[in-house]
Design a protein around this nucleic acid. Structure first.
Lengths: 228, 228
DNA sequence: AGGTCCTAAGTGAGTGATTACTCACGTCGG
DNA sequence: CCGACGTGAGTAATCACTCACTTAGGACCT
């Protein structure tokens, strides 16, 4: 077993542990067990528990490759809708696999916000730098083409509003028994997209036109009562 | 010192500690010090650390008196706007005093969502029971009067969308140095209200009519760059 | 009023368990 | 045979929690 590989295995195990029980709630013994090694070896790779935590946060700050494909799109209403749809879908899918990498990163981000917010700040800055320009340009383009009503100052705030909503939405669906029940996931996804796109200022016809292409159309109003 | 008073003092001190560092990150010695008593006395009042935590969560589940005034309002577009405005204002004001009671309750709720979600579930249910009916009725009334576009199924989801957005918004403003900078708070409040009301389906004229009454009107688009 | 309980408030100094972390010592490929 | 991988058995500190003990104040009797 090479040192580098071992290091990655430790980081992976530790990330799982920290995300589940937080920094203080996780013991080095637990991490070592999760990585199937002795505690001593753990401390051969990372001098302290804090250093291990810091390494995880640093590693999590790297870019998401899936995002890159979105950035090449030309600014347009279509791009805006694709962007929002991608974000909503991406986050909603997380709650189906609460132990996966991305859900853990979300947990780390939330715990960071409860603490000093440093990690969250870095992550927000990265997201903003990546998506901010294409979002803003697309929204402005949508206004020009008459698909959206005039945007006031700080259009980027609108992006964060959307991001906040979806993030908190997935957070309520993260515990084993969900905090809220929203109905069927597919319809929730549709409803969330509509809420956000309307919030951005897009008019109903533009939303319907772009959303109906690849998303289930708004079904007839009837109550379904299944739990989430 | 009576037993009841002492108990309340302990609860108050413990709530402060738990909200700041979480359950695992808080020691009984710290709590005792914060309450200016010995650890032994702490355990005379609460059999275990967990019982103390449970008592805090149980106490936090009581109704907010400020909410009650909203529930008497007749369902209308006006009520809907007042509701959203109240919620946004209430949450935004929290970030100005991160150590106050309500901010702590918010922290407890978030940590609960990262854990088993039990506390968050109870709190969500309480909020839903209180505000849900008047929200839904008001939204339906707004549709009837032509102030809002037709609402699909599960209108209550729209309320939670709004709630999620504002909750996550205040969370980014909770750390000493904010995770994101949104510009001036007054304009942020206005922008958040507009985003939500548009998201609910209200048309621009209805929003402007009800929002301009007691909120600063949308200023001319120009960038301001102060940090939050 | 003053003396005598008697219960509850309150504490210093512990308990064993668990914590993060260390060290002397095996083992194995090159 | 040497250096890096790997570990069992520790360490001191800290954890939640307990116990023997003092103190204070109100009820009750004389």
């Amino acid at each position: 077993m090479t040192s580098d590989l071992r290091r990655e295995l430790i980081l992976s195990a530790a990330k799982r542990c920290f995300a589940r029980t937080g920094f203080a709630g996780t013991t080095t013994k637990t991490i070592a067990a999760a990585a199937s090694i002795s505690e001593a070896l753990l401390f051969k790779h990372f001098p302290t528990k804090s250093a291990l935590y810091a390494a995880i946060l640093a590693e999590a700050c790297e870019a998401d490759p899936k995002l890159a494909t979105l950035l090449g799109l030309a600014p347009s209403t279509e791009t805006l809708v694709v962007l929002i749809r991608g974000m909503v879908g991406h986050f909603l899918q997380m709650s189906d696999a609460p132990d996966e990498e991305e859900a853990q990163q979300l947990r780390l981000m939330i715990t960071s916000q409860l603490d000093d917010g440093e990690f969250a700040r870095v992550l927000y800055e990265k997201i903003g730098d990546l998506i901010g320009p294409v979002f803003t340009a697309s929204l402005e383009r949508a206004v020009e083409t008459g698909d959206a009503s005039e945007v006031g100052q700080r259009p980027i705030n609108l992006f964060w509003f959307a991001h906040h909503m979806v993030l908190q939405l997935v957070l309520t669906r993260l515990p084993p028994t969900n905090c809220l029940s929203y109905g069927e996931t597919a319809q929730l996804e549709r409803q969330a997209c509509e809420f956000i796109l309307r919030g951005l200022g897009l008019n109903e016809t533009a939303i319907a036109a772009h959303l109906d292409r690849d998303l289930a159309p708004d079904p007839a109003p009837e109550r379904s009562t299944e739990s989430a």
